[in-house]
Amino acid sequence: MSIFETRGITKRFGGLTAVNDLTFTVNKGEIFGIIGPNGSGKTTVFNMISRFFPITAGEIYFNDKRIDTLPAHEICKIGIGRTFQVVKPLRRMTVQENVMAGAFLRTGSISKARQKAEEIINFCNLENYKFRASKGLPIPLRKRLEIARALATEPQLLLLDETCAGLNPKESEAAIELIRRIRDTGITIIIIEHIMKVMMGISDRILAINFGKEIAMGKPQEVANHPEVIKAYLGEAYA
């Protein structure tokens, strides 16, 4: 059953077409991966979904409702959370306060927000850093805080942008484990990732894009062996 759908979404920045006529469907409960070389338009897709900028053409549907006309802050309210590739912690706030800021979307009460934050912090294994200011955290924890904060808004669909970038193998294993646990709670995930190994391991389906256009879509193995994908990543000679 589909929870999320784009129909021919296009984004032009002046003469540059960053995303070109992209159509895909995400099923409820799956982990949907988007891959592509640098500058292929992955993050632009997220910014279009979360309405950080208006789309040039096309339509976006979430739970069968059109959402590409909503303002940015409404997107989170209807149940789409996101993280940022370049993490954006609320710097001078503690980890707990960061997560509470997310939890306030569903409650006006401080004690309820604190309680919700407590649960999420434990779920993300951040309990030892609860009272630390977020600006002092090392990058793996900041990435995890980014996820925790988005989870606190109780999303049905979570957009993860390069959650494993810059992490060592052990840290990215922990991140993958967290992503799996999030999926097990029933949250649908769209994930952008550079590291093929990560994507192959956790995605149910993968969309590969290059120059903003779809070049392959399907099961991880199919996509990884698709000649267009190999060409995009490794060059003509290997395809």
Partner: peptide, 26 residues
């Protein structure tokens, strides 16, 4: 300051884009 509004105001100060992504009408 010690209500939900206060948390939202500080969130906007610390990072407006992150605040928007948390559903805060800035």
């Amino acid at each position: 300051v010690h209500s939900k509004i206060g948390y939202y105001l500080v969130s906007i100060r610390e990072d407006q884009d992150a605040a928007t992504s948390l559903g805060i009408p800035t």
